[in-house]
Amino acid sequence: MTISEPISEVDIEVSINGRTRRHRVPARLLLSDYIRDTVGLTGTHLGCEHGYCGACTVIVDGDAVRSCLMLAVQADGAEVRTVEDLAPAGSDCLSPMQQAFHDNHALQCGFCTAGFLMTLDSVDPAEWSEPERVVELLSGNLCRCTGYQNIVTAVTEAWSAYDGSGGSNDG
């Protein structure tokens, strides 16, 4: 929707994890703060607020983005997914990638974990499962605890069904 006249507060409608939310927000409100404070989903973390660490990564209309580098108003009309949406609803189960992280001790303090999971969830494993591609993909998220090795192992395990030559993303 067009906003022709400059305004300092904007009415937005955002689908977050499948639920439509409507809020009036200050134009300067960052998407990360909108998700955490306005909506109350605190699984998305702020690690640097200048777009380097990747802890705040969420998925907007299918793409992984740094939520600290987007304004909430830019997500008006968009579909946003956060880490809270990854595990199958209404069960104690984890998603296959979450389970692989758990099984491979791929998180320690866990602060960066949501960002990694959202980055991973946003891509087609068939295009990214080659070892060098996994490293390239993960290099957009900082982790200070694990030395990355177990994260790579977890991803490799979760994506073992994909050989990089194509295949479905249904698993």
């Binding site: 067009t2 022709s4 305004i7 607020e49």
Partner: peptide
């Protein structure tokens, strides 16, 4: 690390965008 206040607009044409750009310091 939060932005200072500003106004926002979202034009639908380049002409509108240019008008907006010229409207503020």
């Amino acid at each position: 690390m939060k932005p200072a206040p500003f106004d926002y607009c979202r034009p639908s044409t380049v002409t509108e965008a240019l008008e907006a750009l010229s409207s503020a310091e």
